[in-house]
């Protein structure tokens, strides 16, 4: 595979993040290679089926 990338410029005003957790990465900069893996097991009661907040008509 051949790709050509042109980074013409990157200017950012504000970034606001609540939380970065569980081996996550917030990167301002360049990167060559990134491989991520995540296992997550949560109990069935944590899932809600259907809407819990009624949507406005």
């Amino acid at each position: 595979m051949n790709i050509e990338v042109h980074n013409w410029g990157l200017n950012v005003g504000n970034v606001g993040i609540d939380n970065i957790a569980a081996s996550s990465i917030f990167l301002i900069g360049d990167n060559d290679e990134i491989v991520l893996s995540s296992f997550f097991d949560t109990p069935p009661e944590a899932f809600t089926i259907g809407n819990i907040v009624p949507l406005a008509p």
């Binding site: 990465i25 097991d41 949560t42």
Partner: peptide, 9 residues
């Protein structure tokens, strides 16, 4: 970067 996370609730 090689990152790994394992979480159980």
């Amino acid at each position: 970067i090689y990152a790994e996370a394992r979480l159980k609730h």
